[in-house]
């Protein structure tokens, strides 16, 4: 099994998984917060904020990657500050994770927001009259009720991260062992003569990973919905 891929190909697979998992988990709390805020709160500039969050969905990925490079590159606005703190993002796998998180964020927030909007706000009011403060009410009522949508959103973001190419290659390039994910590895193999076999192998691997992720999320979601359907 281990012979199926060369060490360089395995490195790309593990890097992709690591980048996608870190991107998904790190953006999850922000995604839940943004989705809840957009679903429940009214504040000035809400439409503008929503538009900004959804922007990476409609921009060419290369543009997003270039904006990240300007902002988080070594001489970028935030990049310089972060570099002083010892955090380097450009041309580093953490930068790939940031690029994937940004690209997956709109998908994540969209699914979660719909889910929060579908929960009855009067249930949180009822929790309030029973003595639960808003934060406790969120964790005991809103969050569990929106869980199927949160799982769906996280899966979408994870899948997006696995497939992300344009923003990643623009922001952190294509360095084998450091920033070369499955997508950029396949791109590289297609460019070189005789790389077709390796590209095909990685293609199969990425199909398997994507299928597994989607099936797992379907199963989790169906169980969640079954639990709620018993009670809706």
């Amino acid at each position: 099994m281990a012979d199926f891929l060369s060490p360089a190909e395995w490195a790309a697979v593990f890097l992709s998984l690591r980048v996608a998992i870190v991107a998904t988990l790190a953006s999850l709390p922000f995604g839940v917060f943004a989705a809840y805020a957009l679903a429940r709160w009214h504040f000035p500039g809400k439409t503008l904020l929503a538009a900004l969050l959804y922007l990476p969905l409609v921009l060419p990925p290369v543009v997003t990657g270039y904006v990240l490079l300007i902002a988080f590159g070594r001489r970028g606005i935030f990049g310089a500050v972060l570099a002083d703190l010892g955090i380097v993002l450009s041309f580093h796998w953490t930068g790939a994770a940031l690029a994937c998180a940004v690209m997956g964020f709109p998908l994540m927030v969209r699914a979660m927001r719909l889910s929060f909007e579908a929960t009855d706000p009067r249930l949180v009011e009822a929790a309030g009259t029973l003595g639960a403060n808003p934060i406790v009410g969120f964790f005991l009522v809103s969050l569990p009720l929106a869980l199927p949508g949160i799982i769906a959103g996280a899966t979408l973001a994870f899948a997006r991260a696995l497939g992300e190419f344009g923003a990643t290659i623009t922001f952190v390039a294509n360095i084998p062992g450091e920033t070369q994910t499955i997508a950029s590895a396949i791109y590289t193999f297609i460019q070189v003569p005789g790389g077709d076999a390796a590209a095909l192998r990685l293609t199969l691997v990425s199909i398997v990973i994507a299928l597994a992720a989607v099936i797992a999320s379907e199963i989790i979601q169906r169980q969640g919905e079954k639990r709620l359907a018993r009670s809706a």
Partner: peptide, 20 residues
């Protein structure tokens, strides 16, 4: 005083039981 600090119980027209 916010509702969670009032210690006033409410039974609504539709029960608003927590479905989960």
């Amino acid at each position: 005083v916010p509702s969670h600090k009032r210690r006033i119980g409410v039974v609504f027209q539709d029960s608003h039981l927590f479905p989960h």
